[in-house]
């Protein structure tokens, strides 16, 4: 237990710090509502405008709507960019201190990123459920609401899959962090990540709605595991073997990225030492 203390402390301190930003949470919530509402209305226009195509669509309108709210509620745990603290550390040179601490740098950064992301997630997702899951049905707009999971087993599988999604997102954030440290510049990689994340996680459009020929490839690529897979488990679009296949993919990508990241961070850090960082 004692061996874990620095990591728990790192998680807690980051989590507590981020929870202070009340205005940021409200602002994030507002953003999610806006994008969610626009996405829902656009999807509705397409689905309702073409009943035949809608009937043939791999997910129903109601599922696409729930997908949209999930995507907005979980916005904070998408690997949009590297941890700003690492970027700041690179700029000010304070990352050298992380090399001096008697802890595993990868693990420390990983839990810090996890603290950062989950602290931002908690208030945003709570408000999102309140607005899209509870308030919308109450004002008689239930058809545009965030629906509950399709079944108890779907809910349980979703809980597992979403946990893995956050673990995977943190592993991707770590790869970005390492690129930031290696290139000593956060801007380039962050700009590059935005379009990749917005498309390949399913945030902009559920992956199932892209042309049928690319759907298998979209399912297999790593970013699906951060949003699309848990979402489809949630509303029962992925069940049974397919659900477990999705979870297997999440585990595969997470493990691969952690192994890759640890190896790479070690090399980057030792290079920094040689250069006198």
């Amino acid at each position: 237990m004692d061996a874990l203390r620095p990591y728990i402390a790192a998680f807690n301190s980051r989590f507590l710090l981020m929870m202070q930003y009340r205005a940021a949470a409200l602002a994030g919530f507002f953003t999610q509502c806006w994008f969610g509402a626009v996405h829902v209305m656009v999807l509705a226009a397409f689905y309702l405008g073409a009943p035949e195509a809608a009937a043939a669509s791999p997910i129903t309108l109601s599922q696409a709507v729930t997908y949209t709210w999930l995507a907005q509620g979980l916005l904070a745990v998408m690997p949009w960019n590297g941890d700003p603290e690492v970027a700041a550390g690179v700029r000010t040179g304070s990352i050298s201190y992380d090399r001096l601490r008697p802890v595993d740098a990868y693990a420390l950064w990983y839990v810090r990123a996890a603290g950062w992301m989950t602290a931002r997630l908690v208030p945003r997702v709570a408000l999102m459920i309140l607005a899209a899951g509870i308030a919308l049905p109450l004002i008689g707009q239930g058809q545009w609401a965030w629906q509950p999971p399709s079944s108890l087993s779907a809910a349980l599988l979703f809980a597992l899959s979403e946990t893995l999604a956050i673990a995977l997102a943190c592993a991707i954030v770590m790869l970005i962090n390492i690129i930031v440290v290696a290139t000593l510049n956060a801007r380039g990689i962050n700009i590059l990540m935005q379009p990749i994340v917005i498309i390949f996680t399913g945030n902009l459009l559920p992956l199932a709605l892209y042309p049928d020929v690319v759907r298998v490839a979209l399912f297999l690529q790593p970013f699906a595991g951060t949003l699309d897979i848990p979402n489809r488990i949630y509303f029962g679009n992925l069940t049974g073997q397919m659900a477990w296949a999705g979870i297997g993919l999440q585990i595969f990508w997470t493990v691969l990225f952690i192994v890759l990241g640890r190896f790479w961070l070690g090399r980057v850090m030792s290079r920094l030492e040689v250069q006198g960082g």
């Binding site: 507590l16 929870m19 949470a25």
Partner: peptide
């Protein structure tokens, strides 16, 4: 001002 601890953080929100 913020109260210390996890609960304080939530209350501060």
């Amino acid at each position: 001002e913020r109260d210390p601890g996890m609960l304080g953080a939530v209350r501060g929100l």
